[in-house]
């Protein structure tokens, strides 16, 4: 899913380049937000547990709770603009709304938009059965074993890169089996057709919780982590700073860790500086 968002938004960023020539010359959006009494948030709530809708159609999830807490600290209300993801970055660049949550932090995007400090990190992990030949999630310990991945996703790309590194060192690569859905990879693991599953950690934790009937266990994380953060138009440095301050306060109070446990099942240490990849 994160991967899909990356590709769609790259496309949208290219389209937005045509719109982005004139950045609004008005004052910082922070002043408008205070005057209006609300912050306008563009959101595509199709991405649980980060953001989704409940049965009543209300926008809920990890990021909405964070946004509402930060907005409460600023003394303003939250106004959601619910829209498909491909319109969000172009609209943000055009100044049609104040912020959007849950963007992968990439160097390409950082050239067009600013980020508040990260709210989450996407990190991949290795899932195994409790009785397993897998010693740890280190790539050396996976060499020569079979791993299930979802085809054409970022975890699969990452494993292919790690395989190249293994082969360069003269080790056997991990044999990758591509599947369509997470359920299929779990089924392959349960049937012992594979030794492990590699996918986004929050997805695997959810699978462990949903399939309590299977002896599933996390062997650990694999590869680097990629920060996820809120995006703001570059014309609004005061707003970006205010959002970052609000998030720091939620970190200090323990509210952010509490929400991470509630939605992801684990907590993550997140950087506050130098988090944009070069």
């Amino acid at each position: 899913m994160l991967n899909r968002r990356f590709m769609l938004s790259s496309l949208a960023a290219v389209l937005a380049a045509g719109l982005a020539t004139a950045t609004p010359a008005a004052a910082d959006a922070l002043d408008d937000i205070k005057a209006r009494g609300s912050i306008i948030v563009a959101i595509d709530p199709t991405f649980p547990p980060f953001e989704f809708t409940d049965a009543a159609g209300k926008v809920v999830g990890y990021d909405p709770e964070l946004i509402e807490a930060v907005a409460a600290g600023m003394g303003v209300k939250v106004e959601y603009k619910v829209m498909a993801f491909s319109g969000i970055i172009p609209g943000l660049i055009a100044g049609a709304f104040d912020m959007t949550p849950t963007l992968n932090v990439t160097a390409e995007r950082a050239a067009k938009i600013d980020y508040a400090i990260p709210t989450a990190a996407s990190v991949n992990a290795v899932l195994t059965l409790k009785e397993t030949a897998v010693k740890s999630s280190a790539i050396e310990d996976l060499a020569g074993l079979k791993c299930a991945v979802k085809a054409t996703t970022q975890p699969e790309q990452m494993m292919t890169t790690l395989n190249d590194e293994l082969e360069a060192k003269g080790a056997k690569p991990v044999e990758l089996l591509g599947f369509e859905t997470i359920e299929q990879t779990i089924a392959a693991l349960a049937d012992k057709r594979v030794d492990c599953v590699v996918d986004d950690k929050s997805v695997l934790v959810e699978a462990i919780n949903k399939r309590a009937d299977l002896p599933l266990a996390l062997a650990g994380e694999i590869g680097g982590s990629q920060p996820i953060a809120w995006g703001v138009n570059k014309a609004n440095p005061k707003l970006t700073a205010a959002l970052s301050d609000g998030l720091k306060a939620l970190k200090a109070s323990g509210k952010m860790a509490e929400l991470q446990t509630k939605y992801f099942g684990y907590t993550t240490d997140l950087p506050e500086t130098d988090f944009v990849p070069k």
Partner: peptide
């Protein structure tokens, strides 16, 4: 049409 929608919706506020 996708581009036209973006231009009308986000071009007008600019």
């Amino acid at each position: 049409l996708f581009v036209q929608l973006l231009v009308v919706s986000f071009g007008l506020p600019m």
